[in-house]
Amino acid sequence: MWIHHRHQGRCFDFLVVYLQNSDPSADILMFYLKHRTTLHAFYFFHFVIYIGGVVDIVPLLQKLGLSEYEAKAYKVLLDSGIVTAKHVSNLSGIPLTRIYESLVSLEKRGLVATMETRPKRYRALGPDSLRNLIEEKRRRVEEEVKEAENIYETIRSVVSEPPSSEVEVERESFWIFRGRDNCMRELKRNLKEAREEIKLFVGDLSWIDEVMDILEEKSKEGVKFKILCHVNKNTEERVRKLLNLGFEIRSWDEEIIKGNIKDGEKANLTFKNPRPGVRRKDTYGEPGSDRLFNYELLMSMNPVFVKMVETYFESFWKNGRNARELLD
């Protein structure tokens, strides 16, 4: 929305951008870059004004991977068109001794073009060139992952398995995993190691997409699944996905205790509680909503514990209603 304002005999025009929240985002940056010519015509030189405050694009450029000097130089070039390094230095506050390395870096990253005059002149390329920074980040992450995998393989090749005495102690012990991600890793480990049967007693299946590839693989291997979960309109789509894999599913309405049993030899109990300010009913069934909870997982291969958890599961399984019948 354009606002026309008169102050002390002078007229000013502002473009106000309404957002759903007051957090600066890349959307503001892209809007500014695409419409800067129009904005400048209305004395809109340095900021996009939006309800909730004023946003400087320099920090946003830094979030995309530019250094402070690079971001300031690029911002000046966007505002100024074709200019010299000295001009960029004067307007950005970057020392003249540092401006050239920033401009050379921007050119190498595909954000700036250079005119071979005396002195040299520079101009910013269009906003689409910022995608180069996204590609840089992607390549860097891929390289880091590859390096981490190599390190893992190296460590694995030189570290021996624990002695059998320690394995026996582990079978009788109880282990605690804290945090949602650690609990999810333990679940994935159980699923991958399963040879015959997995029994799951869970909730709204808001996490199921994270393990769907493992479930599909285990289904092809012939591993049997018996799943207790919430069966209703909020979970219907996810339940049907599992039914299509040939899993047996029955309904239950438990909220606090979840868990799984692998091949009758290892059992997990998971306890979750909402974080402060989160109510269960506000997040029910939304994909990823389980991240709003605090998690603890109790794991053991102790035969007595495994039998107890299995008995708990079977008592609910016996009384659970068939999911396919409930949905059809």
Rank of each mutant, 00 (worst) to 15 (best):
E210Q: 10
G277N: 07
Y284E: 05
D253T: 12
L29D: 05
R138D: 04
Y122H: 01
Q20F: 13
L64P: 05
S300N: 00
M299N: 01
D13S: 12
L130P: 04
Y284S: 08
V141C: 02
S129A: 05
K272L: 14
N268T: 12
Q8C: 10
F201N: 04
K75E: 15
I151R: 10
E149T: 10
E116Q: 13
V278F: 05
G264D: 13
V88M: 03
E197M: 05
L103P: 02
L205Y: 02
K307D: 11
V17C: 11
G65C: 00
H87V: 01
I51H: 13
I57T: 12
H40N: 10
M184K: 14
Y312R: 03
T283Y: 06
D209E: 14
S315W: 11
S289Y: 05
F12I: 08
L228T: 01
R250D: 02
F14D: 03
N90T: 10
I257A: 13
V159F: 04
G285W: 01
I49M: 12
K137I: 10
F47H: 09
F47W: 04
I94M: 04
F201Q: 01
I155S: 07
A71G: 06
N150Q: 15
E68Q: 13
C229A: 07
R171L: 12
L66I: 05
M308A: 15
L33A: 15
E325A: 13
